[in-house]
Write a protein that binds this DNA or RNA. Structure first.
Length: 451
DNA sequence: TCTGGGGTCCTAGGACCC
DNA sequence: TCTGGGGTCCTAGGACCC
């Protein structure tokens, strides 16, 4: 472990010249697995789904030497690196490390914004009056992460999120001809370098430009950021809509107005699963939908939230997906209600092909206030006077409202299957025993793997 | 080689209200 | 009887990020 070699041929700039910092932990999930099992050290390790439909979520640098990359299908990864160890992933453990990581960043500044578990943006502006120098602060941050977590990281410093992220990418180790080349660890982008990067980068390097947008841009003859900068925003707007045009246009000039916003709250909670073997017919699909609804309900209650919108997603073997959603006039957080709505939504989707994925998600989230029953009923009287009888009346009203909502749904889409005979009270719901997590896709083929 | 699971944001069309 | 325009909410789909 030597998180040391900061690239500081430059003098430390002022905070105002490089107010945005981006940190990215190296090969995060794989690194945690190696820390917990030192016998893995030096071996090619990945975390992901090992089955035919699994993909790699995180690969150690040893694995990257063989060309293994995250998002790569596991079968491909194994072909390139037969000795690759693929582990299923333990999210609780990663979350623990992530909390410790955030705590270290928080010691530098509370103005930080996590991006997934292993990255954060931080805004150092408020440190200017303390005369903090960004390069020194970044080096110290990286050192602490290495010392206290045992995980290497890359830190980028720039005038905005765009450059900070590009910089942290350049701070990382790289693989060249199968050989691991260490990165500088900390990179600050000075103004001259910003210009150079804008002249060199492909459009694909910009935030928000993925494969689809990159291809559309290329068809317009715009493969590089330099070319993109020659096109005016109005032209881009006609092709990509106002939001994307504004963002592309700004980034092509090196501008990025996105603020570092701490304390962002989740807008949805969902759960989905790709099956090792695709499902045919409503019976099997509905069982899975119901199970996912249970997971979502528990997550809602754990976070003391209720959802007003329930959505279902069904993906078919040809990868095309159908999404259905229903907004309710009251909030729900129990599996009976969520499963009832989710099942009705799923039943409205014509199943003309085998189903490879089913998912349920909850959105329009609100904090749960007191008894959830009152949300639907609003008894105007003081909550403490809510009698058992009133509560039961309220629960009944709630169920009635739910039934209406589901009836609406069935009317809207026409019934496509025979009723399952399920009632909507949570007591009557038999949520299947939780199966093992399939965090990164099915790990076994064919079996119904209960564990 | 053929694509997971957790999310976010944007767009477009329709319903509804004023 | 037929009509405008703006705002808001909802739904469905698509693209993107880690």
């Amino acid at each position: 472990m030597k998180p040391s070699d900061t690239s500081s041929s430059v003098t430390d700039p002022s905070v105002l010249d490089a107010p945005v910092l981006h940190v990215d932990l190296d090969a995060f999930f794989a690194s945690v697995e190696i820390l917990d099992d030192p016998s893995l050290r030096g071996r090619p390790v990945a975390v992901g789904g090992a089955g035919e439909r699994g993909v790699i979520a995180s690969a150690s640098y040893e694995a990257r030497r063989f060309g293994v990359r995250s998002a790569m299908p596991s079968v491909v990864a194994l072909r390139q690196c037969p000795q690759l160890v693929i582990l299923p992933g333990r999210f609780d453990r990663y979350e623990e490390y992530s909390r410790r990581f955030h705590a270290i960043v928080n010691d530098l500044t509370p103005i930080y914004e996590p991006l997934g578990l292993d990255e954060v943006f931080a805004d150092l502006t408020s440190l200017a009056r303390l005369d903090v120098r960004p390069l020194a602060a970044a080096a110290e941050l990286r050192q602490r992460i290495g010392d206290e977590l045992g995980i290497l990281s890359g830190v980028g410093l720039g005038p905005n999120k765009l450059f900070a992220k590009l910089a942290s990418k350049r701070s990382k180790p790289t693989v060249r001809d199968g050989v691991l080349v260490p990165g500088p660890g900390v990179v600050y982008v000075d103004p001259a370098t910003r210009e150079r990067w804008l002249n060199e980068l492909p459009v694909r390097a910009l935030w928000g430009v993925g494969p689809a947008t990159a291809e559309r841009l290329e068809r317009l003859g715009l493969s590089s950021v330099r070319e993109l900068a020659t096109v005016d925003e109005a032209t881009l707007r006609s092709h990509f809509g106002p939001a994307m045009a504004a963002s592309l246009s700004a980034m092509a000039r090196g501008e990025d107005a996105r603020a570092v916003s701490p304390h962002r709250v989740n807008k949805s909670i969902g759960h989905e699963e790709t099956f090792a073997t695709s499902l045919v017919g409503y019976d099997d699909v509905l069982v899975q939908i119901r199970r996912h609804a249970g997971v979502v309900a528990r997550a809602l209650r754990d976070s003391s939230q209720v959802a007003h919108t329930i959505s279902v997603v069904i993906r078919f073997d040809d990868l095309h997906a159908v999404r259905r959603s229903q907004t309710l006039s009251f909030g729900v957080d129990d599996e009976g209600a969520i499963a009832g709505v989710a099942e009705a939504l799923a039943e409205s989707v014509p199943l003309n092909a085998a189903v490879r994925l089913a998912g349920v998600s909850a959105s329009s989230l609100r904090a749960r206030e007191g008894s959830q029953v009152q949300l639907a009923f609003d008894l105007s009287s003081a909550p403490e006077t809510l009698s058992v009888e009133a509560a039961s009346r309220a629960a009944q009203a709630n169920r009635a409202a739910l039934r209406d909502a589901i009836d609406d749904l069935r009317q809207r889409f026409g019934r496509s299957v025979i009723a399952q005979g399920s009632d909507l009270t949570s007591a009557e719901v038999h949520v299947e025993r939780q199966r093992g997590s399939h965090a990164f896709g099915p790990s076994t083929e064919g079996s119904s793997d209960t564990q």
